[in-house]
Amino acid sequence: MSASDLEQQPPAVEGTAPRGYELVLPPGWVRIPLREGTKEALEKVLFSHMGQVPEGIPRDDAMRFRLDMRRQIEKQARAARRNGGLDLYLPVHPRGGIFLMASFIVAEMPIGQDRAAPPEAVLAQLANEDGPDGSATEVEVAGVPALRRSYRSAPDPAKLRSAPEAVQQTALPARRVEYVIPVVDGHGRWISINFSTPGDGDLDSEFTGVLVELFDAVVGTFKWSYE
């Protein structure tokens, strides 16, 4: 189980707003906190969780692989923190000899809506803003109305041509799923849970679909923490 604290603001009624959230992670996944403790979590991932390396990497190159992985995670964590991220989650154990290319971020959302507006009205507006390449569905998370949006993303060819070669090699089309959830009695606050994966390179494959289903199952374990 993983848990994270929310940045506290005065609730509408003292003692009714959750202090954080909890969820159950699949085996091999870890949480990287983005507000504090990031460095310590990265050290733990580097030296404890990454004792294995993918098949095909020589033993002598294991440390280099771990350091490269850490740099990639640090870059991802910095980008997530700039966008209001609270926590970054990703798999760090290889499955079947390979590392899964997937991650999700829990973040605070600057929706900027009237705090008096009911959550249902906000969710309806967000659903109507969904683009033509995606779909939005009203769902329930932790006993409250929420929104699930799914879509696909692809790198901009024009921007990609001018990007460094390393970026071009790692830029892949991705399946993305976002949950938008109101903080219970949270004074008009919202969070999002954003998932992204290129799967096995085929966004319509069974393997990619299984990763999306895995993420949906993780969100199904989400609950608020009041301690």
Rank of each mutant, 00 (worst) to 15 (best):
M69T: 02
L23D: 00
P164D: 04
I73W: 03
A166Q: 15
L100I: 15
L88F: 04
V45W: 04
G220P: 01
V24R: 12
R78Y: 02
V177R: 07
H93N: 14
P182L: 02
S135T: 10
P164M: 15
S150R: 13
Q113D: 01
G84Y: 01
V13N: 09
Y179Q: 08
G220C: 01
L147R: 03
L42R: 01
L90N: 04
W190L: 05
R81D: 01
K75H: 09
V141D: 02
N83A: 05
L123Q: 03
A124G: 12
Q76T: 06
R19D: 12
V45S: 15
G188P: 00
R115L: 09
V122A: 11
R78A: 12
N83L: 04
V53W: 00
R78E: 01
E36P: 06
D114T: 13
D202C: 07
V53I: 14
P173I: 05
D133A: 14
R82Y: 04
R152T: 07
P94C: 14
P119H: 07
G186V: 08
V13F: 14
G56N: 06
L25C: 12
P198K: 14
Q76L: 15
Y226A: 11
I191S: 10
V92H: 06
P33A: 00
W190F: 10
M1N: 08
V13T: 12
A17R: 05
P164S: 02
I111F: 15
R149Y: 10
I181W: 00
G96E: 02
S135P: 01
V139L: 05
T170P: 04
L88D: 03
P164V: 08
Q52R: 11
W224T: 03
K39V: 13
D61T: 11
Q72W: 04
P155Y: 12
V210W: 03
E227M: 02
S162W: 13
W29H: 09
E40Q: 00
V177T: 15
R148V: 00
E206M: 13
A174F: 04
A102F: 00
S162Q: 12
Y226S: 05
D204T: 09
Y226L: 01
A121L: 09
E120F: 11
A158K: 11
G188C: 10
E120V: 15
I73M: 02
A136E: 12
D204S: 05
P157Y: 04
Q168P: 12
L67W: 00
E129V: 03
S162T: 01
G51Q: 07
E138H: 12
V92T: 04
L203Y: 06
D185C: 15
D87R: 08
G97I: 08
R82L: 10
L90Q: 07
K39T: 06
N83P: 05
G199D: 01
R176I: 12
A217T: 11
L34C: 05
P26Y: 03
